[in-house]
Design a protein around this nucleic acid. Structure first.
Lengths: 234, 234
DNA sequence: TGTTCGGAACGAACATGTTCGTTATCTTCG
DNA sequence: CGAAGATAACGAACATGTTCGTTCCGAACA
């Protein structure tokens, strides 16, 4: 056939199109996220990089949230699970694992936001859960509590990271909203909102690491010491 | 009627344009959310209803997330705070208030999703926090723990509602993703993931109300019994 | 009274996610 | 070997959020 004079020639230059696949799409997305951050990774960008159209990606990926979940699962592979089999207090080791996961999410708040609506379901996520369950077992926590407790831990970690999702795009907006809220809290007159006024800024801020540490301890304590079917009938 | 040749006549027919204002925009959004659900409330829709352009709304509202937060704050007004001053076990009354808030969010998961990234900062939200702090005080929980604990409770409530945000648009996708995850969990061979296999579906499901009740109790227990500055230096 | 200036309003435009209808390609059966 | 059917790929289109440059109005001011 006489080639159209203006046909896209990029297709010939490349080493042969690697044939679209879910794994390939996710792998590319992971690379791009690592290299340029999440906000640069759009469907069209991915498609362009793969020399195809955005619509073609939807054969392998239901939507962006699911793609993000897959990317996150890949990144979870870098969470250090060695504390699961190490020596020492199980709570400390549990905290290490959860903190490692939390840091990962804080590095990519947009992923956390997506992960809320489309949970990761890959092998790495499963391994993470397995590790956490093992740690709870080492602590003698009944498996029923551990099962629900793991979910609580992951949900909290994900949600607290997702809170910072706006920073991905707009750092100033976040700061401004923060001012609005804190000023509101601090301005709460002692008459109308005595308790809010009393605790003041402690509601929201506090030293970030101390705050996170306390929350993690509180969650684990609650999980470990609250029996199931205590007040529930059924 | 002799039509004006090209002038937009809607402007004259209406009882006089009420002049754009943040309060008016939020009020209209609340009405529309109540009447038609969140997904029908878009910037363009609001603008059309107000007989203006979408861009004009951005003078009063930073973005959709902030608008949603404002709407949510309005809806929080319907959360029943009477248990704060009622008789009975403070934990039960706390649970009533939190559950009331949780239900509200479950009715509008999209709002919960937005509320994660742009927290409500209005009077109703403040009143809710005030009530929760009061309940913790009645329980003799140190105010420092209560302050951070309230945040944990709200965050968990919001996040667990946001998980269902996809149902707003796409109910089937959610169900399918669920199947994927559960099949993955149940298919976890006992050799590679013994703990996951052991707890099985209990990880994710369980009777919804029993699960929520237990989680709430566990959170409150942890908050109430975990002292601050126990293991933190500084 | 006339001018100017700042903010509000607006229309157009852009990027993105997602869907629809069509075309190409590949497998599978006759 | 050839036809039929499924599935992938694709381009175009739509809805939405958000921004940009411009216009308009009303108030402070000369």
């Amino acid at each position: 056939m006489a080639l159209a004079p203006e046909g896209p020639r990029s297709r010939r230059d490349r080493p042969a199109k690697p044939a679209l696949s879910r794994a390939g799409i996710v792998a590319l997305a992971v690379d791009l996220v690592r290299a340029e951050g999440l906000k640069r990774v759009t469907m069209r960008r991915l498609a362009q990089e793969l020399d195809t159209g955005a619509a073609s990606l939807y054969v392998y990926v239901r939507n962006t949230a699911e793609l993000h979940a897959a990317v996150l699962d890949e990144l979870i592979g870098s969470v250090d699970l060695s504390p699961v089999t190490a020596e020492g207090d199980w709570r400390d080791r549990l905290a290490q694992v959860v903190t490692s996961y939390t840091w990962l999410l804080f590095r990519h708040p947009g992923l956390a936001q997506s992960a809320l609506v489309a949970r990761p379901s890959g092998d790495n996520y499963l391994a993470l859960i397995e590790g956490l369950l093992a740690l709870f077992e080492q602590g003698g926590v009944p498996s029923g509590q551990a099962a629900w407790g793991v979910d609580v831990l992951m949900l909290h970690s994900t949600a607290s990271a997702a809170e910072h999702a706006s920073e991905d795009k707009d750092e100033a907006a976040d700061a401004s909203a923060w001012e609005t809220l804190t000023s509101k809290v601090l301005g709460a007159s002692a008459e109308t909102h005595p308790h809010v006024a009393a605790v003041g800024a402690d509601l929201l801020s506090g030293p970030p690491t101390a705050r996170r540490d306390w929350i993690l301890r509180a969650l684990v304590n609650g999980i470990a010491t609250t029996p199931r079917t205590a007040t529930d009938p059924h």
